[in-house]
Computed example of a mutant assay.
Amino acid sequence: MKIRNDYTCPFEIVHDIIKGKWKTIIIFQMRSSSVSLSQLEKSIEGISQKMLLQQLNELRHFGLVNKANAPG
């Protein structure tokens, strides 16, 4: 994941962290409770397990999810 070094606005940081097709969908699916990897796979049409794990790892890197609610 490429993150810019210089920002003119805090929203640029947020954009860099959650940009892409899947991250906002994953965050939305995890909004109310802990979910398993298989539950996420079933609830997100078109995402592969490999892509899901990659996106969860990136979200975990920035502290948006943790292993308790994001297995992988």
Rank of each mutant, 00 (worst) to 15 (best):
S43R: 03
E58Q: 12
I26S: 02
M1I: 09
N69F: 14
S48K: 09
L53E: 15
H61Q: 13
N69S: 14
E12S: 06
D16L: 01
S32H: 13
S33W: 06
Q29W: 06
I13Q: 05
K50S: 15
K42I: 00
D16G: 03
V35F: 03
I47L: 08
G20N: 10
V65A: 05
L64T: 08
G46Q: 02
P71V: 14
T24E: 08
Q29I: 08
S43D: 04
K21I: 10
K67C: 14
N66V: 10
C9P: 01
G46I: 04
L56V: 10
E45G: 06
K23Y: 03
S33E: 15
N5V: 04
I25N: 06
P10E: 04
N66W: 11
H61R: 13
Q49H: 11
S36D: 03
K50C: 14
I26V: 06
F11Y: 13
K42N: 01
Q54N: 10
E41Y: 01
E12N: 05
I27F: 10
I25E: 11
K42V: 00
F62G: 06
I3M: 11
R4N: 06
I25D: 07
G72K: 11
S32Q: 11
V65F: 02
A70C: 12
S34V: 10
M51H: 09
K2F: 13
K21N: 10
W22Y: 08
E58M: 09
L59S: 03
K2S: 15
S32R: 10
I44D: 01
L53R: 12
S48E: 11
Q39P: 00
Q29C: 10
R4P: 03
S32I: 13
L59C: 09
V35W: 02
I18H: 01
I13W: 07
I44V: 03
L64R: 07
P71E: 14
M51V: 13
Q54A: 14
L59I: 09
L56W: 06
G20T: 03
L56M: 10
P71W: 08
N57D: 15
Q55R: 13
T24R: 08
H61Y: 14
H15S: 12
S36W: 01
P10T: 07
H15W: 07
F11D: 11
P10N: 05
I47S: 02
R4L: 07
E45S: 12
S43H: 00
H15D: 13
Y7K: 01
C9D: 14
I26F: 01
K21D: 05
F28C: 07
I13N: 03
S33T: 15
P71L: 12
N5S: 11
K21R: 12
S32N: 14
C9R: 06
I44Y: 00
M30E: 05
D16V: 04
H15N: 13
T8M: 07
K2A: 15
K21C: 07
L59F: 05
R60C: 15
Q29E: 12
R31T: 05
E41G: 00
G63Q: 04
I13V: 14
G20S: 10
